[in-house]
Structure formats: C-alpha cells, structure tokens
C-alpha cells in the first residue's frame, strides 16, 4: 500500500518532465489542439459575426501562406516578394471591377471598367502569372541570399508602382467601392456566403498544392532545395522547376489578393508593404516549412494573435500593433532556437 502511494507520488512529481517530453515530441499535435481550441473559444465568446470575419481573414492569409510554402518550404527559395503578387492580384481585381465615378477628384481621368468580379478574377490571376514569368526568368538564376535580395527588390518595386502609377491605382487614395462577387445574377453580399466562397478557393489552392507536392514534380522541387547542382547532373533543369513553382505560387497569391479586394471593397498601397511579406514568411516558418498543414495552422495562429491581442485587458489600443509584432518576433526566435523546422514541418532552413 505504501509502495503504491510512493509510486503515485513519484509519477506525480515526474509529471512536469513527462509533459515537457510529450510537448517536445508531439509539438505538432499539441499545437494543433491548442490553436484550434483557442480559435473555438475565441469565436464562441465573440459571436457569429466576429467568427465569420475571423475565418474569412484566416482563409485569405492561409491562401498566401500555403502558396508561399511551395516556394519557401518545398523549393527552399526565401522570397519576400510574395506581397507584390498579392498586391497585383488585389489591384487588378480592384481596377477592373470598381466604379468610383462619384468620388473622382476634379479633372481626374481614370479608366472605368466596372467588370463583374468573376470576369476580373481570372485576369488578376493570369496577370500575376505573366508578371511572375517575366521576373522569374531572371530570378530563377539566383539562389540563397541573393534570392532574398532580388525578391526584396521586387516587393519594393511593386509597392512603388502601387503608390506612383496614379492614373491606374489612384496612388495613396486607394480604390473604393469594389463590388461583391456576383454568381449567375446573385450577389454575394452575405458574410457567411462570402466566407464559403473564400473557403472554396482555399480548398482549391490546398488541393492543387497537395497534388503538386506529392507528384514527381514536388519531389524534384525538394531535391532542388537540397542540392541544385547535383539534381542537374541527373537531367533536371533546376531553373525551370524554380520558375514553374514561382509562377504557380504567384498566381495563388494573386487569387488571395483579388479575394481581399472584393472582401474589404477597398485597396490602398498600405496593405502591400514589405512588412506583410515578412509576417507571411514568419507564418510559414512558424507553421512548418514544407508542410501544407503547418501553413494552415500558422495562418490560424497568426489571425488569432492579430485579433486576440486587441482584447488583452489594460493594453492601450495604440500599442496593440507593436505587441503583436513583439509576440510574433519572440515566437520566431524561440522556434529557430529550439525547433528550426517549425511546428509541423520537416525541413530545416
């Protein structure tokens, strides 16, 4: 009897160690459970309207994260230029669908298309593909740190085009009154319907990404990531594979951008600053490189953090943004120290 009690108390005293051990070895499962529980609690306590907003924002970030992971996690190209394609997609959809006739400044001339959203969407996606193809031909020759620099350059150029190409983008004014999507004469005005549409697009992107990474093509991408020169000797042209995945990923980011434009019905250059790209890179790394599930998890955790910090008691609203970034930055440093492959990933940077 005494021995049994001793055993129980010993087991109990070992509990923290056991927990820590389990946490380290099953971080993916723990993180999934914690993030989903947090999301559920948060949404239940804030009501339906808030939940729908949260999940819609999540879906848009998730599209970006999954598409960036194809380039960053699977192919090993650290691109901080993803926000450029996000912006091109958003602006193309905005310019083609908006009808800002009433609010034009005096003497301002701007081409008004007023297309339906579903006509503008393929154009936005294709335009991203074309731009990605053009810059990608040059970018595919680079690797490692040089790749970071050229993609950085791309993000800067894209931002400056958004700000300064005023007769198309209306510069810092932004474009307002972007209409909601219309399917067969039915306008998707309801938030829940819009959420379902966004989730459908997210599902398509996740599906395509899954097909890519499990195909022979995906295997070559990983080999390119591991040793670009060695895989060439076996008959693969690395630069073609890098170009192809870059274009596919850019088109997915363009889709996310178009959804953002019609969701917020307003775009301006501030949504496409370099910081957004860096946050996105952080999401992909935190969630897990070369793991689609990790990117979804990372995007959900990020959106929870974004919205959650706002409700922290005693925190003045003007500091919310900073606190968010400090938390994200700290998480990134901790993860690089203790788990370089991210929460759900396999590949270490």
């Amino acid at each position: 009897m005494q021995i049994r009690q001793l055993e129980i108390s010993q087991n109990f005293s070992r509990l923290p160690q056991t927990l820590l051990f389990s946490l380290r070895n099953h971080l993916e499962i723990w993180a999934t459970v914690i993030v989903i529980l947090a999301a559920a609690t948060f949404m239940l306590s804030r009501g339906t309207g808030f939940s729908i907003t949260l999940v819609t924002v999540f879906a848009i970030w998730a599209m970006l994260a999954v598409s960036l992971n194809l380039v960053l996690g699977y192919t090993g190209l650290l691109s901080v230029g993803h926000v450029g394609f996000y912006g091109i997609g958003a602006y193309t959809a905005a310019v083609l669908t908006a009808n800002p006739r009433q609010e034009l400044l005096e003497g301002e001339i701007i081409q008004i298309f007023a297309w339906p959203f579903f006509a503008a969407l393929p154009v936005a996606v294709l335009l991203c593909g074309v731009v990605a193809l053009i810059v990608g031909v040059a970018f595919s020759r680079f690797r490692d740190d040089v790749y970071v620099l050229v993609s950085f350059g791309f993000a800067i150029i894209a931002y400056n085009v958004f700000v300064n190409w005023q007769w198309v983008t209306r510069g810092p004014f932004g474009i307002h009154q972007i209409p909601k999507p219309v399917i067969f004469g039915y306008t998707i005005n309801d938030d829940l319907e819009f959420l379902l549409l966004t989730l459908a697009f997210l599902a398509i992107i996740v599906g395509i990404s899954w097909l890519i990474v499990t195909s022979s093509f995906g295997r070559v991408l990983k080999a390119v990531r591991e040793d670009e020169d060695a895989i060439e000797v076996f008959g693969y042209r690395s630069s073609r594979y890098k170009l192809a995945i870059w274009v596919i990923s850019a088109m997915m980011a363009g889709l996310a951008g178009a959804m953002l434009a019609t969701y917020t019905s307003f775009v301006d250059p501030n949504s496409f600053i370099l910081l957004e790209s860096i946050l996105l890179v952080a999401i992909v790394i935190l969630g897990g490189l070369a793991s689609i599930w990790g990117s979804l998890l990372g995007a959900l955790a990020f959106v929870l953090l974004e919205e959650g910090v706002r409700f922290v008691p005693f925190l003045p609203p003007e500091h919310v943004g900073q606190v968010r970034q400090i938390i994200l930055g700290t998480l990134l440093v901790l993860l690089m120290l203790f788990r370089p492959q991210g929460v759900a990933g396999r590949f270490k940077l």
Binding site: T214, S215, S216, F217, R219, R237, R240, A244
Partner: peptide
C-alpha cells in the same frame, strides 16, 4: 525515386 521519374517539368506534375 527522384532520378527515376519524368524529366519534363510539365509532365512530372502529373506523375507519381
């Protein structure tokens, strides 16, 4: 596997 499969980047998308 990586050295056995399709060399063309387009065709390899549809191969497992």
């Amino acid at each position: 596997y990586v050295v056995m499969t399709e060399r063309s980047s387009l065709l390899s998308l549809f191969q497992r």
